[in-house]
Amino acid sequence: MNVLVPYITRWSGEDTAPFRIVARRNGIGYADETLGERDSRGILWTRTPSRHGQGKPVFGQIHGPRQRRAMRNLLCQVCAGPADQSTDGVLWILQDQRADWPGWPNRMGVTEPPICLPCAELSARLCPALRRGRVLVRAGAHPLAGVLGTQYRPRLGTPVKTETGLVTFDSPHIRWTLAAQLFRELDNCTILETP
């Protein structure tokens, strides 16, 4: 039996090796940091090996580097092909949270990459998280806005974890954040029929 495994799903063979975070002059770093562990903005990223397809899929856990690629390039989170786009914007499938605030999902940060229409239909049927209610959303504006990551604060010698959450690129906390995923802020949204 073939199981559909979304592109951004982490596999059991992609476990992260142990690491040690240290305080630097303006934020955090790895004790043994190497070139390429920060992006062009200087943000430190979680070390995650890329062994797509090795082991078993760990549904509900995201592979950071593949999520970043899909978010940066507006690729479908399931098949990694181009996300569906129209004159109304790029397509997302989201858990239905319209009761959260008037105008939802405008101004909402999302870590879920966009999706193509065939994969949206499959996801609506197969994804347990979407069975409780979902909507298709076209976002006319969807700028990259920051990261989802673990924040640290300085403490004598060793930084201490404080919380995990969304941190915008312009936040002073970004240098004290170990980033795991990118997020985009959706705006100019149109809610479509539920698949």
Rank of each mutant, 00 (worst) to 15 (best):
Q67H: 02
L178P: 14
P118M: 02
E37N: 08
D39M: 02
R132H: 15
C79M: 08
G133A: 07
L91K: 00
E112G: 13
R25I: 07
A139F: 10
E37S: 11
N106K: 03
C127T: 12
T194A: 03
P172D: 05
F59I: 07
G36K: 06
N73L: 09
R51I: 04
R41T: 14
E185Q: 04
S86I: 02
G165S: 01
V22F: 08
G109S: 15
P143T: 03
G42H: 06
I174Y: 09
H52E: 03
H142T: 07
T111H: 12
W176F: 11
R153Y: 02
L178T: 03
V147K: 13
F169L: 08
P18N: 00
D170P: 01
W11G: 02
W101I: 11
R51H: 09
P113N: 01
M1Q: 05
F59T: 05
A129V: 15
E37H: 03
M108R: 13
R125L: 08
L91N: 02
L148R: 12
R25F: 15
E14M: 06
V78R: 04
G55V: 08
R38F: 12
P128W: 00
I62F: 09
F183M: 10
R10M: 00
C127F: 02
M108G: 14
V135Y: 01
K161N: 11
R184H: 03
Y152H: 04
Q54K: 14
P118C: 15
F183V: 00
P82R: 14
D32C: 15
T87I: 06
A23D: 05
P195Y: 05
I8H: 12
I174W: 09
R20E: 06
S171F: 11
I191M: 03
L126W: 10
I8S: 06
F19P: 03
A180R: 14
L44F: 05
M108K: 13
G103I: 01
G109N: 11
L192G: 05
I43E: 00
F59H: 10
F169R: 02
S40E: 10
E185M: 15
I115E: 01
D32N: 15
T164M: 01
M71N: 10
L75W: 04
R69E: 15
G27M: 04
P18I: 08
L182E: 05
H63I: 01
N106G: 13
T34C: 06
R38Q: 10
T158I: 14
G103Q: 00
A141F: 14
L148F: 15
E33M: 08
G29C: 08
T34E: 13
S123H: 01
E33D: 07
A31D: 07
R20T: 14
G55F: 11
T164W: 00
P6Q: 00
A179N: 01
T48I: 14
D88V: 05
T177K: 12
Q95A: 13
L182Q: 09
A31I: 06
R184Y: 02
A179H: 02
R153F: 03
Q54E: 08
L4C: 07
M108A: 14
V78S: 12
F19I: 09
R47C: 09
V90S: 00
